[in-house]
Simulated scan of single mutants.
Amino acid sequence: MASSADSTQPPREQRIGPVLRRRSRIQRGTMDQHLLDSRQRSAEYVHEDPWRVLRMQAEFVEGFGALAEVGPAIAVFGSARTAPGSPDYARGVEIGRALVEAGFAVITGGGPGAMEAANKGALEAGGLSVGLGIELPFEQGLNQYVDLGVNFRYFFVRKTCFVKYAEGFVVLPGGLGTMDELFEALTLVQTRKVTRFPIVLFGTEYWGGLVDWLRRTVIAEGKASERDLELFHVTDDVQEAVQLVSKEAADGGRRGI
């Protein structure tokens, strides 16, 4: 019987920073998991934390170095579960293409679905297509339309790079990860940790319930201000989305994160 090494199927892969692991060398868990898992709070683990700080520092250095010359760029977020051929996927391709035509590079999370769609549109339009990937227990890897890719171990380092190198965000329909990026950006703008930059939610039907909840519950109960609804725009029109991020990016310039 042929061994697994002789199989015609490609082996499972795991990429952790510059390291490639296959088969029995694949590690369980992620760096975020090892850092945050309270079950591993032993005296021995505490002594390892200073070394983890150096690894985090290295991720910042590598990320900043790779992205420093990207130029004006817009980050596009959306669900990894968006199916190719679906309306949301098609809109992602259109948005990626239109952003390049407006003079921007396109930055996504580098994964499949809506991220792949935006990268595909950017590449087809002849622009710079960037992917900022993340180490996950279920390995996805960067999609084939990424020209410049950086893989991160830690979510917070990756999110810093998104905000630092994007002039604005376009947010396609997505799940918890998409909302995490959205509310991170809204919080930074609301608290003036960064100079205001455009945040566009694409898809009025999809995002309408969230906007209604913010207005009728969060703002109505005094947990946010009516002015906070002005921190973002909602649209179904590709050209309007591009015009909104283009105008505000030009007015606001770079932020000092």
Rank of each mutant, 00 (worst) to 15 (best):
A5Y: 14
D6L: 09
S7D: 14
S7T: 07
T8I: 14
Q9F: 11
P10R: 08
P18T: 08
V19W: 11
R22D: 07
Q33C: 13
D37I: 11
D37E: 12
R39N: 12
R41I: 06
E44K: 09
M56K: 08
E62Y: 11
E62N: 12
G63R: 02
A68N: 06
A75Q: 04
V76P: 05
V76M: 03
F77S: 04
S79V: 04
R81Q: 13
A83H: 13
P84Y: 10
P84H: 07
S86Q: 04
P87E: 01
V93W: 00
I95V: 14
I95L: 15
A98H: 05
L99T: 05
V100M: 07
V100Q: 05
V100R: 03
G103Y: 08
F104R: 10
T108S: 03
G111N: 02
G111P: 01
G113V: 02
A114S: 14
M115E: 01
E116K: 00
A117I: 05
G121R: 08
A122C: 06
A122I: 06
G126T: 08
L128M: 09
G133V: 05
E135W: 09
E135H: 12
P137T: 11
P137Q: 08
F138W: 13
G141P: 09
N143F: 04
Q144G: 06
D147H: 14
D147L: 12
G149R: 09
G149H: 08
N151W: 10
F152L: 07
F152W: 07
R153I: 00
Y154K: 01
F155N: 13
F155I: 07
F156N: 06
K159P: 09
T160E: 08
F162I: 07
Y165A: 01
Y165W: 10
A166S: 15
E167Y: 08
G168E: 05
G168I: 08
T178R: 02
D180I: 01
D180Q: 11
E181T: 00
L186T: 04
T187M: 07
L188P: 03
V189P: 03
T191Q: 11
T191M: 14
T195N: 14
R196H: 14
L201E: 07
G203H: 10
T204V: 09
E205M: 10
L210K: 02
V211Q: 09
D212M: 13
W213S: 11
L214A: 15
R215P: 02
V218R: 07
K223S: 05
A224R: 00
D228M: 06
E230V: 01
F232I: 06
V234Y: 07
T235L: 05
D236S: 10
V238E: 03
Q239V: 09
A241H: 07
V242R: 11
L244F: 04
L244H: 02
K247A: 13
A250T: 15
D251A: 12
G252R: 12
